Simulated assay, not measured.
Amino acid sequence: MTARIDHDKRRRELAATMMTIIAESGMESATMRQIAQRAGYANGALAHYFRDKNELNRETFRYIFSSTMHRIDTNAAGLTGLAALRVFCIEMVPCDDIKREGARVVIPFWQRALHDDQLAAEFQSAFRQLRHRASDYLRQALHDGELHTLDEAAALDRLSVTIYGLLVLAVLSPAELSADRQIWLIDDLLDALRHARPAGGTTTSASGSPRG
């Protein structure tokens, strides 16, 4: 068991090293040789932990995703509904140095996923989990009366477009999308959801039944 734990720990450490190199110098700089050297391993030692570079890519993507989920779980602890959703959104966008570093790594992985089916599958899995989490928060908000109505699919699409748009644009154009501006845009979207009214004046409950 200890050997298994050590093996998994080394894999995470190497993924973290790869993430740092990509954030500093780009994907092309993150060679197996450079990663081993930065992590203090002999050349070729990474073969004990990863079959090839593609496997290390996937592990690094999972490392970034799990780090994001951990931040959400920690910072949204004890919160529900729109308060939890606000934390969720803020933890997804590059509004501080840690999240900006993560964004600089995720963006080149998205490009690579266009030609790597296994990496694309990792992205789709992460996207579904994030969407499911946001859905839970929206349903809590509706149940607790924070929302008058909920078109769940439309709300999730608006959240996704806002979050992923900010993730890219705030990295490429930080002067136009400061941290304060990113958070304002998130709050503006949540406020729009909060004040949305159903067509015909009929409010829909979390169970889907009219509330009059």
Rank of each mutant, 00 (worst) to 15 (best):
V161R: 13
Y49E: 09
F127G: 00
G200C: 08
Q129R: 15
I90D: 08
L177C: 00
L159I: 15
N43P: 04
I72N: 09
L130K: 11
H48M: 14
E101L: 04
S178D: 12
Y49V: 01
S209M: 15
I163M: 10
E28R: 06
G165E: 09
A3C: 02
V93C: 05
I107R: 02
A76P: 09
Y49H: 08
Q182E: 13
R211K: 11
S173V: 04
S207P: 00
D73L: 07
A77S: 13
Q37E: 14
R197A: 05
Q140L: 10
L79E: 11
R197C: 07
E59S: 09
S135V: 03
T2N: 10
S29G: 00
R131V: 09
G212A: 13
A153D: 04
A77K: 14
P108C: 06
M69H: 06
K99F: 06
A154T: 13
Q129T: 08
A45N: 08
T74K: 11
E24Y: 02
S125I: 01
Y41Q: 03
L169Y: 04
L159H: 07
E152K: 13
A47D: 13
S209E: 15
P174H: 12
F109L: 14
P174C: 09
I107L: 15
Y137R: 02
L114V: 05
P174Q: 11
E176F: 06
A16V: 01
A103F: 04
E59N: 02
H143M: 13
S66E: 14
R100N: 07
L114N: 11
A76H: 03
L177A: 01
A47M: 11
D116W: 13
V161G: 07
R158A: 15
T31C: 07
K53T: 02
I186C: 02
R38N: 02
R139M: 13
D116M: 06
D188G: 02
W184H: 11
L185H: 10
S67L: 12
I72Q: 10
I5K: 04
S135G: 09
R86E: 15
S66C: 02
M1N: 02
S160C: 06
A3M: 12
N75E: 14
L130V: 01
T20H: 07
S207H: 14
G165C: 03
R62L: 09
I183C: 00
D157M: 07
N57M: 15
N54I: 00
S160V: 07
R11W: 11
M92V: 01
A45L: 01
R58Q: 12
A16Y: 03
G102K: 07
L56N: 04
V106Y: 09
S25Q: 15
A76F: 01
Y63V: 01
G26P: 05
V168K: 05
V105K: 08
